[in-house]
């Protein structure tokens, strides 16, 4: 059985693969959003919580960063029913991926918050903001700028980590590729198609991430360093140069 471009292109737009890619996308997004929520809470507990909350956050981060996602997924889906907790495949995949992601994001968010100048907290207190107002209006928006690049990296990783959910029969790209490979045993074509799909998703995400970064960089970036007055003068000078 030789390599066949025909199979490759056929599989690339195969319904099973496209549905798998779509599942990979939404599973990644949902898990990431939930993980982000968990990460923010864990970071807050760790930074500002009392002793009990801090220990809870530390334990959570330690546990989920210290064990493989694969094992976490298997425990959640096939292990927990033993003690009466029955979750569907989709629930297990989302919960497992989100819990794992949250543990990593907690540390990234914590670093982002610590990167904000202490004077910002003083200034926000000085204009009468409570802790919650300072966090939401002043500290987190500025921390976001630092958080976005590693966060994008994490999401890139998430798109690929979802493939592990195939072991609990989540029908995402990897699982669907496995099924497709069973039909005509075009193993190389099928898995290269799957790999191609991951590349496409990751590339699209890269472009989106650039946009998001540019948005958060706007107040700080080099474009902002040129005052509108100076810009006008530069334009005028350049205009004069053109014939």
């Amino acid at each position: 059985m030789n390599w066949s471009w025909a199979y490759f292109f056929e599989y690339l737009v195969n319904d099973l693969m496209i549905r798998g890619a779509w599942t990979t996308i939404w599973l990644s997004v949902v898990s990431m959003v939930l993980g982000l929520g968990l990460g923010v809470v864990a970071a807050m507990f760790k930074m500002y919580g009392n002793a009990v909350l801090r220990v809870i956050a530390e334990f959570y981060i330690w546990l989920f960063r210290g064990t493989p996602v694969l094992i976490q997924l298997v425990i959640i889906y096939t292990g927990l029913p033993q003690i009466g907790i029955r979750l569907t495949v989709i629930e297990s995949a989302i919960i497992g991926l989100a819990l794992n992601e949250g543990a990593y994001l907690a540390e990234i968010i914590r670093a982002g918050i610590m990167s904000v100048d202490r004077g910002q907290n003083d200034a926000a207190r000085a204009v009468g903001m409570s802790w919650r107002e300072r966090m939401w209006l002043i500290i987190l928006p500025q921390a976001t700028r630092t958080i976005i690049p590693p966060l994008g990296n994490q999401f890139n990783g998430m798109l690929k980590t979802t493939s592990l959910a195939s072991v609990i029969s989540m029908e995402e790209l990897m699982r669907n590729a496995q099924m497709l490979a069973q039909i005509e045993f075009r193993v190389l074509e099928v898995y290269l198609v799957a790999a191609t799909w991951y590349l496409i998703l990751v590339t699209i995400w890269g472009l989106i991430q650039q946009r998001i970064e540019a948005h958060y960089e706007k107040p700080f970036g080099p474009a902002a360093a040129v005052s509108p007055d100076a810009k006008k003068q530069i334009e005028k000078a350049m205009g004069a140069g053109h014939v």
């Binding site: 004077g119 003083d122 200034a123 926000a124 700080f220």
Partner: peptide, 14 residues
């Protein structure tokens, strides 16, 4: 009380 700081401490993202 209004406070004015040595390093201004304006909110750079706003």
């Amino acid at each position: 009380l209004g406070m004015v700081f040595q390093n201004f401490n304006l909110f750079p993202h706003l």
